[in-house]
Design a binder for these strands. Structure first.
Lengths: 222, 222
DNA sequence: CCTGGAATAAAACACTTGTTTGAATTATTG
DNA sequence: CAATAATTCAAACAAGTGTTTTATTCCAGG
């Protein structure tokens, strides 16, 4: 019989985990449609039937891989869970919180100079959304966005509306996400561009200053 | 025999053009991998063999469709060719040129409230680049980016380096492109968000003010 | 050791999909 | 009109792919 899908990670079979790891990596690389279960099984050193035995089918494996990537990413760097970061830094001035937000976001997206598996999976979801995207948004994106809006509100003049703050938040998110969303274009436009820790630092500083000047400058009258 | 690939548009066969139109639409919708030549032929009311007869194979049809979309887009709105817009507005003050740049970019990307076919094709290229991306960049993106950098330089204080201007330009492009690159996420985060002409107008104004305040504000010391 | 279920493996199945073939049809041209 | 080329079409091919089947191996618990 097929193994239960929600088996706790502790009693996971070895091939179960190997399949999951390979799936994350290859799905992130090629997206759902372009990856074959045979490629995953080969990478996981497992038989072709293993996917259906352990997960039911390819789609279920994809969902499991997405969740696995999200959990693994949070384990690797719990600080990156934005809602915790918010509490952690609640006492800091909003300028500082904005910087930490930007910096954390960028570090979450790039690792060893290239987008993380989770980031790549999410980017693929932008092109062909699946239920995994809805889950990710409800579980993480919505709270992160709310935190950003709050930071913006905290450093905006009184009377700033939620709608205005939302727009500013979008401009910040845009600057943070653009670099992985448009990576192929950026790389071709500026081949020397790198995403080393140092470069991410510079980038975070740029976005921070850019945003701070904008928010402190003119206010949208609308 | 197969029809020459570079047949001038004037003597294009009828099914040739129908295939191209259908290809643009469906490739834009689903990307290269997920669209089948059968789907295209059905939409074009042509036989399955028509693709190979008129274009050689699926990949060549894709390339042709990409070029077709680019040319058609330029024909539909020649003002949108940024390098022409630059000459056209060379006499305007840089603030005005920045606004026109942003506005034109947004209008180029959204049509009737949703991304244009060319924009969708380009977004797919972000996920799985093909030679079509390199062509697009050399033929259009590079010049557009250079124009933006020049605008930034024109409204920055003296002593602003190209590297700084490049960073500012990236922040502007990010804000312009984010809305179609991350559309599925934005729609789920803010379901009321629309991209009507009026909304694009507001958005352009926001990005314009945001950027202007940032550029006029602090300068990156790096 | 024996046994029964869990896990793995090899093979095959059913279906999709890009491509080709070869005949039929239509258009062009001398 | 005749003939030659261009185009369309139905059918089939070959390769790839998700999934299933069936048999075999592995391995705890009796």
């Amino acid at each position: 019989m097929t193994q239960a899908a929600s088996t706790p990670s502790t009693k996971m079979n070895s091939t179960h985990r190997r399949l999951l790891d390979a799936a994350v990596r290859i799905f992130a690389e090629r997206g759902f449609r372009r990856t074959t279960v045979r490629a995953i099984c080969e990478a996981a050193d497992a038989n072709v039937a293993a996917v259906n035995y352990h997960f039911g089918n390819k789609a279920a494996l994809y969902d499991a891989a997405f969740d696995h990537a999200r959990l693994r990413s949070n384990e690797a760097n719990p600080f990156v869970q934005m809602d915790e970061a918010r509490n952690f830094h609640a006492k800091q001035p909003p300028e500082r919180r904005l910087y930490l937000f930007i910096r954390t976001m960028l570090e979450h997206q790039f690792r060893d100079g290239k987008p993380t598996d989770l980031t790549r999976l999410m980017t693929h979801e932008m092109m062909q959304p699946t239920p995994a995207l809805d889950r990710l948004i409800e579980v993480s994106v919505r709270r992160v966005h709310a935190n950003l809006v709050q930071i913006i509100l905290d450093l905006s003049p009184k009377g700033t509306t939620d709608k205005q703050a939302h727009r500013y938040a979008m401009s910040v998110s845009a600057q943070c996400h653009f670099h992985h969303l448009a990576l192929p274009m950026i790389q071709r436009l500026e081949p020397t561009q790198r995403y080393t820790p140092k470069a991410l630092d510079d980038l975070a500083n740029h976005i921070h200053r850019f945003t701070l000047a904008a928010v402190r400058g003119a206010n949208d009258p609308v």
